[in-house]
Design a protein around this nucleic acid. Structure first.
Lengths: 222, 222
DNA sequence: GCGATGAATATTGTCGACAATATGAGATAT
DNA sequence: ATATCTCATATTGTCGACAATATTCATCGC
């Protein structure tokens, strides 16, 4: 008998998702104060539930809270973005290493198909960066999953991912290097399917460093 | 005038600290269910505040919560411990790299003093592992701080640290390799004071891998 | 005796109200 | 006019109660 735990969605869960999206997309401006009574009224919900949702957002570093002063949406900064890239480099590098050891042949095959599809998209729509951006996320996401390390997966896909998404939205970070990224993905996948952990980690770290340098250049133009 | 924000400790903060300590030290057994009414009564506090504290513990992966079923203290496992060591290797490796770039000369000097002190302690009390265990934490802690990357510092010193402490308590992990660890710390500090990021990261990762292998051996004995 | 069914009980999710603290406006003194 | 103090207002922290969901346990049918 399948013990299929019926997934119940609690009110706090929905609030958390909704507010997180609003913050990531800048609907609630970065740096602004969050008024509990007002937000609770807007969502037609009690303050208690709202506070729990805010607590989770705080754990994900999307809001900062000071006792008796309330919560503010985190303030984006160039320095913090660099910090995030450094953490990503470390964690995703390790993820790639583990993926080279732990991904199943089937998963690798599917990843190959995904990458082929990206290649065709790049040829067809010259520089339409949006799909490639989504594709970049998909690709990284699968490798992280392939590490089979649940801690790593949680840190990258739950914590860091949304913060990064917030920067992408609000700093208008569209990559002008989709074809280069595609090549780098290609080399990386080769390392993984050759089951070469050392090389996989090295290539992933280089890939993320390139990405960081690209962002740095972009932000210097202001 | 110094705008010294008066640090007020909220009730939830105290609860969080207290319960976290109880969980880490095994006072509340790993895997056991947490009854909100009972815990609230024990601490003489309302369920609302308690729930917020539990939420924070969940964010730190010390408890797991399922909707309408309640919270359980996380179940320790060999596999999870290995996962944690892998994450640590990635993050602390990056921390060492950054520390080699960002620590001040003064901080490096103080770290040297700390290490000298550890060396004397090892000579005096042959294998009294407790102090060395604390010393090991101090040493790593300072390097993480030296990275000057606040995200990294938060992940390691807030999230991972307590989980690791929980394993040390409950698996009775006392290291029998304090003098080897001392040597490794020594080489690592050399790399940092030579401002060699690459070498610092390499040595830190080897150090943590050794530590992991030591744990693996220890657990195989059961 | 064993498993299914349903009522009684307990636990979690959500809410509104009160207490403690911070914020802002207005009055007073320099 | 500026700065300080005081009081009124608003916001956060904490609490107890109700609603929704899970668990327990006795009963029933086989």
């Amino acid at each position: 008998m399948e013990k299929n735990d019926p997934i119940t969605i609690t009110l706090t869960d929905r609030l958390f998702d909704t507010i997180q999206r609003a913050i990531v997309e800048g609907e609630i401006p970065s740096g602004s104060k969050i008024s509990e009574p007002e937000l609770a009224r807007q969502h037609g919900v009690s303050r208690g539930s709202l506070r729990e949702a805010i607590g989770r957002l705080e754990a994900r570093k999307l809001v900062e809270r000071k006792p008796n002063l309330g919560a503010r949406v985190v303030t984006l900064s160039y320095e913090q973005l660099i910090e995030i890239y450094q953490v990503r480099e470390a964690l995703e590098g390790m993820a790639a290493r583990l993926a080279a050891q732990n991904m199943s042949d089937k998963e690798i095959e599917e990843l190959q198909l995904l990458l082929d599809q990206h290649g065709r998209q790049i040829e067809e729509q010259h520089g339409e960066a949006y799909f490639q951006k989504q594709g970049d996320l998909d690709f990284h996401y699968r490798i992280v999953q392939g590490s089979k390390n649940h801690h790593l997966i949680g840190l990258l896909c739950n914590d860091l991912y949304h913060l990064l998404r917030m920067y992408r939205y609000q700093f208008g970070m569209r990559s002008k290097r989709s074809s280069q990224a595609y090549d780098e993905h290609h080399y990386l996948l080769n390392a993984i399917s050759s089951r070469d952990p050392e090389m996989a980690e090295l290539l992933m770290r280089q890939h993320i460093r390139s990405s960081r340098r690209n962002v740095e250049r972009m932000l210097l133009e202001n």
